[in-house]
Write a protein that binds this DNA or RNA. Structure first.
Lengths: 371, 371
DNA sequence: ACAACTGTTGAATCATCTG
DNA sequence: GCAGATGATTCAACAGTTG
């Protein structure tokens, strides 16, 4: 599978191999204007402080590897600007780059991209269907990561397979937010001890969408932070050539073994997780946020024996009880449970109408403009 | 509704008004450490040179595109750093800021926030349920905007109403991606000609979630790019005080008219679910003093594997350990910590009941007869 | 075979009060 | 300011076992 391409007077490109070593040095050793796409998953510079425990007292396995440690923003910025410059030199004039990150680093990466002359095409949000919760209740669940897609320069003719992505998305235009699960289960590579081989392995579904959307078969895809080789694996499946750069020998070994087992157009492997569309859940709070019900407005029970007031956070308050629409309904009826959506009614033009009508309105809107 | 608060020796705060003029000058005229929350929707695009202060840069005569672009980023960065510095000066030590933007500006804003000493708490994706499609099929549908939520500095005790947001989301903790429709229909303000009064009016639902989640009633909320006043409108409804700054007279007029028509929700509706952390502390010893538990009585662990005896001083004694309910629980489980209130159970009518029930009884009494 | 249940885990900047 | 004590807090997916 390894092959070399010859560009006039330039050193050859080590296709479908993993280069050992520092990504900046390695990139600078490759010929300029030779790569179609770069996918980069650089260190996030997480800056974690102490240990974190789940409510059941188990400890969260932190990303505390040495490769993610930087002394300051200035050091991180310098590193970022250097690898981005080396990457840009490598790109063909119509080439493009994807970089993934979190709020810890993505703003610095994005600004550095712009400063380096890249032209941002989209930022894409990977919305994780199964993120790790916020165990201490101190912030919002960090449920997404951000990818930046940029061409080498303004006005470049980048590759964009509009129809292919539209097909992947059930016939409607692909949006800038992608809902995909994190990498778990059998896809997650393990070491000999049975522990995860890499702390931040990305799901193949993510790379599948990136490569289908922004490369063509035969294109050269480079990943300067190759890790355990998800980019290479998906590139190989899709009939693209890859070049990996990875300085950690352990990761390289896992990746090499993985890539040997990958076959082009393996139909089973190409199955991307398409989430089945269940009836979307609509939190009651959304009716309040959207102004369909006002805080302070009164709701009436099905049997008209009880009433309760809506609060700003989407809970109800009755005579001696406060809680969700379901909890308050159940309490007032002395029942073990209650479907608040059909139990509670609001006044509309003098008539009592179940609040479920409002939920149906929201769902109808969602169905009109799916995704 | 307009009121002024007096802070010792400092100029007063013009609450619930819209200040005309440049936001940096106006912010610098207000007293430092006086504002609880800032919500900012700064100009997104970089073609605002007329509006922005050009830096004194003599060498920038070249009509080179890359240079020109860099110059334009530099101008935007300078503007960003200036207003962020003015905003940070205004914030109380435990205050926080929200900034919204798109890929055109948000990376520069985010990096500037970090450089200025703000501490990012979350980036939040506003996922638009009804975005404008990409008509030319050249990129992904730009279907989201990004908000950054940051405290004034690392370690600050920012406001976060975890339980209220959880309620808004039907009892599941709120994530960093919010699905909300864009501002259309009756909510969208029109001018005399019937055209939209402001090009980027934000939906009230977005501000509702921001303000419920990160402010308390009576807090001061400042919006330095007030526009047609969505921040003020939602703040007023929710019983928060607002200060708007807007340089455009047309927008100010629309906002002033809008704000007159807004009414505050009643007090009951404004109460939101609170966490246990907000409840008064009850020492375990009080249960013994009050006779709810007798010295010598046996308590049983959650998993029924352990038991311990209550002592007269409100400590427990187990087989080989004595100490507080938490210490003994943690020791017996080999855990780093333990919440004794939910861990330990006592026998009541033959059933095992958590001792937290007794604490709840005491708290209920305290709420009835507060002193 | 299948349902029910248990246990584990994931790029995380995850306390606060008292003495 | 610091040390020590108190005590608040989780969602979805998957694997493996039990019934």
């Amino acid at each position: 599978m390894t092959k070399m391409t010859k560009i006039e007077g330039a050193p050859a490109l080590p296709l479908n191999t993993i280069m050992p070593g520092d990504c900046i040095e390695m990139m600078n050793a490759l010929p300029e204007n030779s790569v179609d796409l770069i996918f980069a998953d650089p260190p996030y510079n997480l800056q974690l402080r102490g240990d974190l425990h789940r409510p059941d007292n188990s400890q969260v396995d932190a990303v505390d590897d040495a490769w993610d440690q930087f002394d300051s923003f200035a050091v991180y910025d310098k590193f970022t600007r250097e690898w981005l410059a080396a990457a840009r030199r490598l790109l063909k004039p119509n080439g493009a780059i994807w970089v993934i990150g979190s709020y810890h680093n993505i703003f610095r990466v994005g600004a550095a991209l712009q400063d380096a002359g890249y032209w941002i095409l989209n930022d894409v949000v990977w919305r994780k269907s199964n993120p790790m919760p916020n165990f201490r209740g101190k912030r919002l669940t960090n449920a997404h990561e951000t990818m930046i897609w940029a061409s080498k320069s303004e006005g470049a003719k980048y590759t964009f397979n509009y129809e292919a992505l539209k097909s992947l998305n059930d016939g409607v235009q692909m949006r800038s937010d992608w809902v995909l699960p994190i990498c778990t289960g059998h896809e997650r590579l393990k070491d000999e001890a049975g522990d995860k081989a890499h702390p931040t392995q990305k799901p193949q579904s993510l790379l599948h969408r990136v490569l289908v959307g922004s490369t063509n078969p035969g294109d050269v895809v480079l990943d300067p932070f190759f890790g355990t080789g998800t980019t290479g694996a998906v590139a190989k499946m899709l009939g693209r050539d890859y070049i990996g750069i990875e300085r950690d020998e352990g990761y390289r070994k896992v990746a090499e073994k993985r890539l040997k087992g990958i076959r082009k157009f393996d139909r089973e492997a190409l199955q991307v997780s398409t989430s089945k569309r269940a009836e979307p859940r609509v939190p009651f709070g959304q009716l309040v946020e959207r102004g369909m019900l006002r805080p302070g407005e009164e709701l009436y029970s099905l049997n008209q024996r009880h009433k309760a007031k809506v609060r700003a956070d989407g809970t109800l308050i009755g005579d001696d009880i406060k809680g969700s629409i379901h909890q308050v309904g159940a309490h007032l009826e002395g029942a073990p449970s209650c479907n608040g959506w059909t139990y509670w009614h609001f006044k509309k033009d003098g008539k009592r109408v179940p609040i479920d009508l409002l939920r149906q309105q929201i769902r109808a809107e969602m169905a009109e403009r799916p995704n």
